[in-house]
Amino acid sequence: MLKVSIEQVKAARALLRWSQADLAGASGISLPTIKRLEAATGEIGGREDTATAIRAALEAGGVIFIDENGDGPGVRLRKDKP
């Protein structure tokens, strides 16, 4: 599975116009945990199930995570965004 970075999470939230609280609600991860994770850089730290829940919530919102392709990893919205 593609590893997702904190920078991708922040970009994904911006595309969806979600606050940290929105992400916490959608993922089932506490707001303090979201804030702590987003204060870091690099891959999502902490437990693997936390990263999985965050990624799943953002993908359910319509985000596609893009792997490193020479220009760096990124995010975009699905055409058929829910």
Rank of each mutant, 00 (worst) to 15 (best):
I44W: 06
I29N: 04
W18T: 05
L31G: 15
I54E: 06
A56V: 08
E43N: 13
T41S: 14
A51M: 08
G61N: 04
W18D: 01
D49S: 14
E48W: 10
R47Y: 07
K35E: 07
D22M: 09
A60F: 14
L16A: 04
Q20A: 12
L37F: 10
I6Q: 05
A57H: 06
A26S: 04
P32Y: 09
D49E: 13
D22G: 13
E38I: 08
I44H: 08
A21D: 03
L16R: 06
A12E: 08
E43F: 10
R13G: 04
E7R: 02
E48V: 12
R36L: 04
P32E: 02
T41D: 13
G62N: 06
I6M: 05
E38T: 02
A24K: 14
A11Y: 07
A21P: 13
G42K: 01
G62E: 00
I44R: 03
T50E: 01
A26G: 03
G28N: 03
A12R: 00
A11S: 15
V63P: 01
G28T: 02
E38S: 02
D22H: 13
W18G: 01
V9C: 10
R13C: 11
E38C: 03
A40K: 01
A57F: 08
K35W: 10
Q8V: 11
A51V: 05
S19A: 12
A24Y: 09
I44F: 14
L37E: 00
A26I: 03
E7K: 08
S27W: 12
I64R: 02
I64N: 12
L37V: 11
L15I: 09
V9Y: 11
V63N: 04
V9I: 13
L31A: 14
G28F: 13
R36V: 00
T52Y: 13
Q8S: 10
I6K: 06
T52Q: 10
G61R: 09
T50V: 06
G61M: 08
Q8R: 00
A56S: 14
V9G: 06
V9A: 11
G62A: 08
T41N: 14
W18M: 03
I34N: 07
S19E: 07
G62Q: 12
G28H: 09
L37A: 10
A12V: 07
G42A: 07
A51N: 01
A11H: 14
A11L: 15
I34K: 03
E38A: 11
Q20T: 06
